[in-house]
Structure formats: structure tokens, C-alpha cells
């Protein structure tokens, strides 16, 4: 009996280990309007998934629901992350479990410096995990290293969070924060929009340098451009709140070439 039990246990944990994120028939609405209409997606450790799709199809909504934004009402389905049901967790608990969302529109927070904000975040996460806080020197050393990774200027760190930052600086700051927090799952929501080619390359290098067999990435974008730098394992097309097509990285090229109309047509044809 005991052996059987142990076997089951291993099987179970093996199953969870082999899947980082499992989204099952996820439905969500805002102000009574259903935006996500049954999303299914499985992401394994180390994988990069791209989610593409026309504006308004629900990409940011999906990203926000995964990060725990409370305005959205989850009306069905479940999400398992690293073996845990996460829909009941607060945003800060999800962050501490290892989910990171790089915002499409990073928020400006006057009066809170980037460095102080991050120090609080790092130590709150450490507290959640039962670890002792980093002291000022340890923290600064770590932050300096990560800042180099995305060519973040020291002076930006001392300024109020995102306040008066250019679009590019804000996006870079998102990737910098990601580098500091070292999440298991990073969700990048349109991190490429508003970036010139040099900034895009820096951001992509930052993301790639964090890639590892244990970490997964979901890249939300509606341009193929970013995917030249962050090469995905899978590409999914989100349209009207559903994933209507999935394929290898070549699908992104096809979309770039032909646009979304053929997919829309396919969807309408199926009804």
C-alpha cells in the first residue's frame, strides 16, 4: 500500500513539474461583458509561448487575470501554476509564487523611488518565502548587476517610479524589475510597443539572458518583430476571447505576411 501511495505521489508531482502553467477553460468578464471565453493553454518549464492577435481580442485581459487584477471577474475554469490553483490568490501572493507581469502600460508612481519600490518588493517576497530580508549592501550589489543587463541608468533607479520616464525607459524598467525578481513565469504584455530597434534589442537581450530550463515566458505581441529576437516555441492566436489557432514559430511569420483576416475568416466559417 505504502509503495503504491508513494508511486502515485511521484506521478502527481512529476505531472505538475512537467507543466509550469495550465489554463483550463478560463472565462472572465468585466462589467458584465465576457472577454475571455474559454482559454486553454499549457506552458512547460523553459518554454516560450507567443500570444498574438488583433487589438481588443483579450490579450491584456488574459495577462491581467493571470496576475490577479481584481476588476476582472473570473466566471469559469481554473489556472494551475507550479502545482497550485492560483485564482484564489492575491496578486502579491502570485508574484511571490513566481508570476511576473510586464505591463503594457507601466504605472507612474510619484514619490516612490524605483530602488525603494524594488527593495520593498524583494523583501516582501523573501518574507513570503520565510527568508530573511536582504541588507542594503547585498541588495544594491544585486540591483547594480541586473541594471547592467538592460542598460538601466543608475539615475533612473533613484527617480520616482516611472515618473516622467520615456516609453522606452518604462519598458526597460519592466524588464529590469523582472531581472531583479527572477520569476518562474514572465508574462510580457506588448513590451515591444513604442520601442525603437535598439531599445527592442536591449529588452530582448534582457529577456533572453533570463531564459533557463526552469523559467517560462509568455510574450504577448501583435508584431512579429519582437519574435525575431525572442524566439518562441509556440505561437497562439487569440481572437474574440479564444485561442483560435496554435502552431510553431513559423505561424508568426505567416501572420506577419498575411495579417489576421484569414484567421478571422476561418473562425467565422466554423461559426
Amino acid at each position: 500500500m505504502r509503495i503504491t501511495f508513494a508511486g502515485n505521489y511521484h506521478e502527481l508531482s512529476f505531472k505538475y513539474k512537467s507543466v509550469m502553467l495550465s489554463i483550463n477553460d478560463l472565462r472572465a468578464s468585466i462589467e458584465g461583458k465576457e472577454i475571455l471565453k474559454g482559454i486553454n493553454l499549457e506552458v512547460k518549464p523553459g518554454e516560450v509561448h507567443a500570444i498574438m492577435g488583433p487589438n481588443g481580442s483579450g490579450k491584456s485581459t488574459l495577462a491581467s487575470v493571470l496576475a490577479g487584477r481584481e476588476e476582472y471577474e473570473v466566471t469559469g475554469g481554473n489556472v494551475v501554476f507550479d502545482g497550485k490553483q492560483i485564482l484564489e490568490l492575491a496578486p502579491e501572493e502570485r508574484a511571490a509564487e513566481g508570476i511576473f507581469l510586464a505591463f503594457q502600460y507601466p504605472v507612474e508612481i510619484p514619490g516612490v523611488t524605483t530602488i525603494n519600490f524594488l527593495k520593498t518588493a524583494v523583501n516582501e517576497i523573501r518574507k513570503y518565502k520565510g527568508e530573511s530580508p536582504l541588507d542594503a549592501a547585498q541588495f544594491l550589489k544585486m540591483v547594480r548587476e541586473k541594471a547592467k543587463l538592460v542598460s538601466m541608468n543608475d539615475s533612473l533607479l533613484k527617480r520616482a517610479l516611472n515618473e516622467g520616464f520615456s516609453g522606452g525607459e518604462k519598458k526597460r524598467n519592466e524588464i529590469f524589475q523582472m531581472a531583479v525578481l527572477e520569476p518562474k513565469l514572465a508574462i510580457l504584455d506588448e513590451t515591444d510597443s513604442g520601442l525603437d530597434i535598439d531599445a527592442l534589442r536591449i529588452v530582448a537581450e534582457g529577456v533572453n539572458s533570463l531564459r533557463s530550463p526552469e523559467r517560462s515566458t509568455i510574450v504577448v505581441t501583435h508584431y512579429q518583430r519582437l519574435l525575431d529576437y525572442i524566439v518562441p516555441d509556440y505561437v497562439h492566436v487569440l481572437y474574440k476571447g479564444r485561442i483560435v489557432k496554435s502552431g510553431p514559430k513559423e505561424l508568426a511569420l505567416e501572420l506577419e505576411e498575411k495579417g489576421y483576416d484569414w484567421i478571422k475568416a476561418e473562425v467565422e466559417a466554423v461559426g
Binding site: P91, E92, A96, F103, P106, V107, I109
Partner: peptide
């Protein structure tokens, strides 16, 4: 918005 942004980085409410 600011509150959610901070919480999404692990800072408790």
C-alpha cells in the same frame, strides 16, 4: 492602478 502595479510585484496590499 498604482496599487495593483505594486501588488503585482509582490508588495502586500
Amino acid at each position: 492602478e498604482a496599487l495593483f502595479y505594486m501588488r503585482s510585484r509582490g508588495i502586500s496590499q
